[in-house]
Simulated assay, not measured.
Amino acid sequence: MTLNLNFTKKMPFHDLKVNYTFTSPITAIMGASGVGKSTLFQCVSGLKRIDSGKIEFTNKVWNDGSLSLHLPTSERKVGYLFQNLALFPNMNVYHNIAFGLRVQKIAKADIDKNVRHISDYLKISHLLYSSIQKLSGGEKQRVAMARAMITEPNLLLLDEPFNGLDEETREICMNLVGQMAADFRIPVIFVTHYRFEAEKMTNDILMIKDGQIGKA
């Protein structure tokens, strides 16, 4: 599976110009704050429209600026783990994980089956009826990952997924992402500020600088 990006997105202080084809199982993206890393993810996921150019995934066009084609986020099947995790504090773990399937109006029995399958895989079954507010940082990370993966996405975007974790938990979560990419055969693109994280996860490391993206 390949993600081909060739687009421009206007930003407050510069334009983000991306011309790159993602083919690696795991790709890391680095860059200073404000250079457009999150904007890149939002364009790929469909949360933001590109201003010109094209976004394609395995020969299916998601965006085409010249034709004003903008495939909705729901049709792209992109798993997105936000930097702040964006878990719903008023829902327990089970309902956080199930949220994407409930939006799709999947049958309750199938939702339950899928929630239990992914929670078993991520070793959080014992937390299903726990409050989000009572979880540790590593547990919240796994819940967010489960919510991103339960819809069986074509692509997984992780925005600083290891930020704020202690050293031991970070190591566990980094190994988990690598294992998931292999087990589910899903391409992963993740943002990090730390070179050692990027080098541990992949040899394909990109840098965004001055609105351009290229090999770090």
Results as ranks from 00 to 15, higher is better:
119 S>G: 04
139 E>P: 08
132 I>Y: 03
117 H>K: 15
115 V>E: 03
116 R>Q: 14
120 D>W: 03
126 H>A: 14
134 K>I: 10
109 A>R: 09
137 G>Y: 07
131 S>K: 14
111 I>S: 02
119 S>E: 01
107 A>N: 11
111 I>W: 04
132 I>W: 01
134 K>G: 14
105 K>Y: 06
115 V>S: 05
123 K>P: 00
139 E>S: 07
111 I>P: 01
116 R>K: 15
148 A>R: 02
145 M>K: 05
131 S>Y: 08
144 A>K: 03
110 D>A: 14
114 N>G: 05
136 S>M: 10
145 M>N: 02
137 G>R: 02
124 I>P: 00
136 S>A: 10
133 Q>K: 13
135 L>N: 06
148 A>G: 05
110 D>G: 06
109 A>L: 09
120 D>N: 14
138 G>A: 09
139 E>R: 06
130 S>A: 12
117 H>A: 15
142 R>Y: 03
123 K>R: 12
117 H>T: 09
148 A>S: 14
143 V>L: 06
133 Q>G: 15
105 K>P: 06
147 R>Y: 09
108 K>D: 13
137 G>N: 06
109 A>T: 13
144 A>C: 09
131 S>N: 14
120 D>I: 04
145 M>R: 04
117 H>W: 13
109 A>I: 12
139 E>W: 08
107 A>R: 09
115 V>I: 10
122 L>F: 06
107 A>G: 03
109 A>Q: 10
121 Y>M: 15
105 K>A: 11
131 S>A: 14
112 D>H: 13
107 A>C: 00
111 I>G: 02
146 A>N: 00
117 H>S: 14
130 S>D: 11
118 I>E: 01
123 K>W: 02
146 A>Y: 00
142 R>T: 01
113 K>L: 14
108 K>I: 04
134 K>D: 12
137 G>P: 07
143 V>F: 04
137 G>Q: 08
